[in-house]
């Protein structure tokens, strides 16, 4: 049910627009009130125009940096506003690493939560817990950041990082001084922040699986776990993947909380204990103070890259989710 609505809101009109020939709006919304259809046209075109405008603005602002550095911008690691040398590799690295690790933690956790809420727990427990998990999404990013600074980072520095260093210190990931603030803190905050996204969409995917599919397994003498493996997970694979990608999209663009705990140092380090920086955090951190035109342009170019990547990732996720919803409709 809910999945259909997600699909309809997000992607269906666009898909139809792209697929059909002739006047797309006539094909999309035939035989409806002309005024209503006109309003819809205006809104749809407005959204398109707005997206295009943002892309154009970013491109325009970034132009001096693009001219100056070319592809080197994406390949070099020096970020020195004083000497006006800008290489974005460390922030791209920081974004990718923090998001991927966050997803690696959040995905199994979220799918577990969704399975628990949907398949295992009685409704009396599932409803309030589900509500609480969704409320995690309502906490403002800056509040996560404060919690990260005052609670998470000290705890990581005093307890978790020394422990990891002691037992897993052989791995480069867990070497170096335990600052607390740094990549690991950002990863954990991101994981918590994207868990509600992944789990609520996974839950909707599970809910879209008809009862008769589950009963097929149960009637064969499957236990609850076996039923989940046979009927739920097998069926929901694509949908879960879409949910995870959506979570990834969110992690890539998350700014405030990350900026507050990641340490903001534009360096590539193999260790998760080290401070780092992401595309979003470097923009938030430096834009206000950027004085030289080239510095502003470099930040805008990072914005352009981030916009492109998150747009792509989200589009992929929506498409996957849309496909899953479509399968359900046609069955």
């Amino acid at each position: 049910m809910a999945l259909d609505m997600v699909a309809q809101r997000c992607i269906l009109p666009f898909r139809r627009l792209l697929k059909r020939k002739g006047d797309p709006f006539q094909m999309c919304w035939p035989r409806i009130d002309p005024l209503f259809s006109f309003t819809l046209k205006v809104i749809a075109l407005g959204v398109f125009a707005f997206l295009a405008l943002i892309a154009f603005f970013l491109f325009y602002s970034a132009w001096p940096a693009i001219l100056r550095f070319g592809w080197e911008f994406l390949r070099t690691s020096t970020w020195d506003p004083v000497k006006e040398i800008f290489g974005a590799l460390p922030v791209i690295y920081g974004t990718v690493i923090s998001s991927l690790f966050a997803v690696a933690i959040a995905a199994p956790l979220s799918v577990g939560i969704a399975l628990f809420l949907n398949e295992l727990s009685p409704r009396k427990i599932a409803t309030p817990i589900g509500f609480l998990v969704e409320m995690l999404a309502a906490i403002p990013s800056v509040v996560y950041g404060l919690w990260g600074i005052f609670v998470l980072a000290p705890w990581l520095g005093d307890v978790v990082q020394p422990f990891l260093g002691k037992w897993l210190g052989a791995l480069p990931l867990f070497q170096g001084p335990p600052y607390g603030v740094g990549m690991l803190a950002a990863i954990i905050i991101l994981a918590i922040m994207i868990t509600p996204t992944i789990s609520s969409i996974s839950k909707e995917v599970f809910q879209a699986i008809p009862r008769s599919d589950r009963e097929a397994a149960l009637a064969l003498g499957a236990t609850r776990w076996e039923m989940m493996k046979l009927s739920v997970l097998g069926r929901a694979r694509a949908g879960i993947f879409g949910a995870v990608i959506l979570g990834l999209g969110r992690a890539l663009g998350e700014t405030m909380a990350v900026t507050m705990v990641i340490g903001n140092r534009s360096e590539i380090s193999a260790s998760l204990f080290a401070p780092g920086q992401t595309m979003a955090s470097v923009i938030a951190n430096e834009y206000a103070e950027a004085t030289s035109d080239l510095h502003v342009a470099a930040l805008a170019e990072i914005g352009l890259v981030l916009f492109g990547v998150t747009f792509l990732i989200n589009a992929i996720a929506r498409l996957i989710i849309w496909k899953v919803a479509q399968v359900k409709v046609t069955r």
């Binding site: 008809p210 008769s212 009963e215 097929a216 397994a217 009637a219 003498g221 069926r235 694979r237």
Partner: peptide, 29 residues
Amino acid sequence: VVIRRKIGMVFQKPNPFPAASVFDNVAAG
């Protein structure tokens, strides 16, 4: 669970395991 292994059931709407092959469907139980 033990009871359901001794008493099979066929439903109104065919409900094979969608991701599984013909063989795996029959072999599932």
